[in-house]
């Protein structure tokens, strides 16, 4: 048993988890169930990142998506309605549209992978990306990074202003 085989096993396990949980997210009639299934989708993605050696991204995926976005979703769902919302059943037309959109995304991804990363090993060397990432963010990409953070700050202040009570 070589490391490549183990990595393949882990990959297919994660992929199966991803596909199954995605299917539950899409097809579940209970929005809370869909939300909890999304947890596994996000964790599987984090697992992919870890498998690809992007440790920082993997952990960030857990922090931001599981700790932030998913909890926010759950909050929204549980606090706004006392009953689980029953999602509407999709019609035949929406199915066709969904399949078409999925195929388009798949094709796009294939083209990108073939065009840009052809010939590169699927699994890069395992080493921390932390330093490289920090150097890039605060060096080469400093302006986009700061611009994004300023935009987010503005959004934050705007949100705080919007939810502020009128009586003050």
């Amino acid at each position: 048993m070589s490391p490549e085989i183990v990595q393949a096993v882990i990959f297919y396990f994660l992929a199966a988890m991803l596909v199954v949980s995605c299917a539950i997210v899409v097809f579940s009639h209970s929005i809370v169930n869909a939300c909890f299934a999304l947890l596994f989708t996000l964790l599987a993605v984090a697992g992919f990142y870890a498998l690809l050696g992007a440790d920082f991204l993997a952990v960030t995926q857990v922090v931001v998506y599981v700790g932030g976005i998913l909890v926010l979703l759950l909050f929204g769902i549980l606090l706004t309605s006392p009953l689980p919302i029953v999602l509407g059943v999709a019609t035949r037309r929406t199915y066709y549209l969904a399949v078409a959109a999925g195929a388009a995304v798949f094709a796009m991804l294939m083209i990108i992978v073939r065009a840009f990363w052809a010939g590169q090993p699927a699994v890069p060397e395992q080493q921390s990306t932390l330093e490289a990432l920090g150097m890039l963010l605060l060096g080469k990409y400093l302006f986009p990074f700061e611009f994004a953070s300023l935009t987010l700050l503005a959004a934050l202040i705007g949100a705080a202003y919007l939810v502020r009570r009128n009586d003050r």
């Binding site: 440790d55 952990v59 700790g67």
Partner: peptide, 13 residues
């Protein structure tokens, strides 16, 4: 190498 960050991230779970 991510030590602390990793340790804190799993609170989300």
């Amino acid at each position: 190498s991510l030590g602390v960050y990793y340790a804190l991230s799993f609170a989300a779970l």
